[in-house]
Amino acid sequence: MARKPLQFHLNGSEKAVFVEDGQNLLDVLRRGVGDLTPKYGCGQGACGTCTVLIDGEPHLSCLTLAETVEGRQITTTAGLAQGADLHPLQKAFMDNFAAQCGYCTPGMLLAAKALLDRNPNPSREDVVEAISGNICRCTGYEPIIDAILEAAKSRGFRQFG
């Protein structure tokens, strides 16, 4: 089977890997690069836990053909904290008990980051829309929505980027 070279930026650092024909980006991130923060839930686009940002916009990595990200910027949850400092969204998720089993959390964080990067003052409705492709089976969503709204209000968000 054909193996193709692929280069992209992951959380700011350059990655060069070989990918197989038909391999999806989630698989490349987890098995090829060893970033285990994007999770595999369904492989069908339905759960959103594999969400990553491609050039700042949320995409489902399980449905992204890996070779289409040549030269692009990928952000995963591993790229959120700066050293020991959690990202304001991560902090707000902790403070609001927005993670229970935690399986949806990486996708939620990135869907929320994409929203706040574009709209620093979202309404509750904007938040609900932004995470509408992400399923959480534990929290009932309210703590997640509260956390995202709180992170938007926290002054640190913009410096963190």
């Binding site: 949320p58 995409h59 449905l63 994409a114 932004a130 509408s132 492709g133």
Partner: peptide, 9 residues
Amino acid sequence: VGGPAVRNM
């Protein structure tokens, strides 16, 4: 159509 990630794709 779908959620935000689906609409980006």
